[in-house]
Computed example of a mutant assay.
Amino acid sequence: MTSPRSFTHVDTWVFDLDNTLYPHHVNLWQQVDVRITEFVSSWLQVTPAEARKLQKDYYLRFGTTMRGMMTLHGVSADDYLAYVHRIDHSPLEPNPALGAAITKLPGRKLILTNGSVDHVDAVLARLGLNAHFDGVFDIIAAEFEPKPAERTYRKFLSDHAVDPTRAAMFEDLARNLTVPHALGMTTVLVVPDGTKEVVREDWELEGRDAAHVDHVTDDLTGFLGKLSR
Rank of each mutant, 00 (worst) to 15 (best):
G68H: 05
R86F: 08
F133N: 00
V213K: 11
V26C: 04
P4G: 10
N27R: 14
H212R: 01
V123Y: 02
W43V: 10
V40C: 07
H89Q: 06
L60Q: 13
F156W: 14
I139D: 03
W29E: 07
D134C: 08
E143P: 04
M70Q: 13
G115V: 03
L28K: 11
R126K: 15
D88I: 09
P106F: 03
H85T: 06
D202T: 10
L105S: 09
A122L: 12
D11F: 04
A51R: 09
A49R: 13
G68D: 04
A82S: 15
T47Y: 07
S228M: 03
G222Q: 12
L227V: 14
H160R: 06
L129D: 00
N27E: 06
R208G: 12
Q55E: 10
G222C: 11
M169R: 11
T65F: 11
G99I: 01
H119G: 09
N95R: 11
E171C: 00
T12F: 01
V123F: 02
V179K: 04
V123G: 03
L224N: 05
L177R: 04
H9I: 07
H24A: 11
V136C: 07
F62P: 13
V34E: 14
T71R: 11
N19W: 08
L44H: 14
V162H: 07
K104S: 14
Y22W: 07
G74H: 12
R35D: 06
R86Q: 15
K226A: 14
H181V: 05
D57I: 02
Y58A: 00
D193I: 06
E197C: 02
E206P: 01
I139C: 07
H160P: 01
L227I: 15
Y153W: 13
G194N: 12
S158N: 07
A210V: 11
T217S: 05
E201M: 11
D16F: 03
R86H: 15
M69V: 02
M66A: 08
F170L: 09
Y59R: 07
I87H: 12
K53Q: 14
P164L: 10
P4C: 08
G63N: 08
R175Y: 13
W29G: 02
L177I: 08
M1I: 12
A122F: 05
A77W: 09
R35F: 02
D209L: 05
H89K: 02
R229L: 08
P148H: 07
Y83Q: 06
L129G: 00
I36V: 15
S90P: 11
L129A: 03
T165Q: 15
Y22E: 03
W13K: 09
K155H: 08
S158A: 14
D121K: 12
V162G: 03
L112D: 01
P146S: 04
E201F: 08
V10N: 05
D219C: 00
P180G: 07
A125S: 13
T195G: 06
M169C: 11
H212A: 04
D33A: 14
R229T: 13
Y58I: 03
L21F: 06
L92A: 03
T165A: 14
D88P: 08
E145M: 09
G194I: 14
M69P: 02
S116R: 13
S90A: 15
G222Y: 13
P91S: 01
D163P: 06
R154P: 14
H85M: 04
I111H: 02
N95A: 04
L17V: 09
P192C: 01
A161C: 02
D209R: 08
F223V: 09
L227N: 06
L127G: 00
A168V: 13
F133Q: 00
D33F: 15
T165Y: 04
N19L: 09
